[in-house]
Amino acid sequence: MFEARIAQGGLLKKVVEAIKDLIEDANFDCNNSGFSLQAMDSSHVSLVALSLRADGFEHYRCDRNVSMGMKLANLSKILKCAGNEDAITMKSEDNGDTITFMFETPNQERLSEFDLKLMDIDSEHLGIPEAEYDATVKLPAGEFQRIVKDLSSIGDTVEISVTKDAVKFGTTGDIGSANIMCRQNKSVDKPEESTEIDINEPVALTFALRYLNSFAKATPLSTHVVLKLSKDLPIVVEYHVPDVGRLGFYLAPKVEE
């Protein structure tokens, strides 16, 4: 059987809210080392990869590998019934056709149980190659969310260019154009506001803002977002959840015809 308990149930809620508009349904794969999900959006230009480590849970048991297909909209409906401070326990029997979610309030006065029907989903598991990236940028997640939101009111795509000292986001649209530059700033007193750039080679790539905006829904998960860029490779937009795992998004760059 599979059983996992996470004290910060709010974290699961945030994860599902971050991906539910991008992917319709997906298999949650559970094995000894943890809980993961990998799925492409319906247009097949972006991929979501979630991994939550077994030791990130208070209690974790998985006797045999299981793959549980769920419709994200339904999962979200159920998790919305959990309080942000609730502990969440997920439970499923081997070969069961449901997964049970138990919500426990911090004072343990209220205990709720919801069963979600599982479904069969055909999905091929794609390997994610370990790539060397030309540039890696770590910036406050809220800052990135604001940039892609602001630029969306001007254009449809953003050119992200990274040099040694700064990362620039630029767009052009019918009403005009916009450029936002963030300088490297490894501020020591406020680490949550730091912007760090690690570069092998300057790089400039263009992406659809619609997807980046969707990825930015993961902002509540982490203080920082990590962007990894290489010429002709999908950008990686990564949110690390300390001691628990990561949520990564991959998006193909727009290629000039």
């Binding site: 972006s46 390997g127 190659p129």
Partner: peptide, 14 residues
């Protein structure tokens, strides 16, 4: 479609 091909090639290289 170029986008899809690029994603496909990337993951196929793993």
């Amino acid at each position: 479609l170029r986008d899809q091909q690029l994603m496909f090639d990337f993951f196929a290289s793993a």
